[in-house]
């Protein structure tokens, strides 16, 4: 496996410990940084995310955001996790008026307050726990279970971006992919073997791009 150097974008918004550890377990030696030079000199970029869209938007307003944009333009592999996926879009209901990176047209919406399953049972928000995806993308496994923790989900304008969906009171977009950009709403770093395999694919030969 040619992992190269992996940089993890540290927006100062939460604990990146588990993401870093997951990449270490997969054989990489990730660097956590908010320094554009460090980020741009890596071979792979990961943007994890915990916290709120507003703080994320503010953190990306300066040179870090520019570095992420430049990175994506450069065609090198990008993996966004949770908020690192949501930040790729233009806006979020979580923080009206606060811009995302706008790499892709679309927005981030909140699960309905009266979310119900097929039998009418009220579903809880945040969506916390293990859920399955439906996917035909080579990085993800159709039918595999991944760990989710979120109240908001991405709604890309271009439906062709969606490479995985998950059912929670209806199907929502749980992963996207386009060229060198890969992003998922769930947490591969918390998803046991299924998650380790996602990271392995990302670190692998980039045949998904």
């Amino acid at each position: 496996m040619t992992t190269g150097r992996v940089a993890i974008v540290d927006l100062g918004l939460g604990n990146l410990h588990s993401v870093a550890k997951a990449f270490e377990r997969a054989g990489a030696k990730p660097v956590l940084s908010a320094d554009p030079e460090v980020l741009l000199s890596a071979d792979r970029l990961v943007m994890p995310g915990q916290g709120a869209f507003k703080e994320c938007s503010h953190a990306l307003a300066g040179e870090v955001g520019e570095a992420v944009r430049a990175w994506i333009d450069s065609g090198r592999p990008y993996l966004g996790i949770c908020l690192g996926m949501q930040a790729l879009f233009e806006s979020s209901e979580e923080a009206p008026g606060e811009p995302g990176l706008g790499i892709f047209p679309g927005s981030v919406r909140r699960f309905s307050v009266d979310l119900r399953d097929e039998s009418g049972v009220r579903l809880k928000v945040p969506h916390i726990g293990w859920n399955q995806i439906a996917s035909t993308h080579p990085v993800f496994e159709d039918g595999a279970w991944y760990y989710f923790v979120h109240s908001y989900y991405c709604v890309p304008k271009d439906e062709a971006l969606v490479v995985a969906t998950t059912d929670y009171g209806g199907r929502f977009c749980s992963a996207i992919a386009r060229d060198n950009v890969l992003a998922c709403q769930f947490h591969p770093e918390k998803s046991q073997h299924a998650g380790v395999r996602v990271i392995g694919h990302f670190l692998g030969d980039v045949s998904w791009s």
């Binding site: 726990g129 293990w130 859920n131």
Partner: peptide
């Protein structure tokens, strides 16, 4: 569908 969790 969200799975029920088992927590040791």
């Amino acid at each position: 569908m969200l799975a029920k969790r088992i927590i040791p």
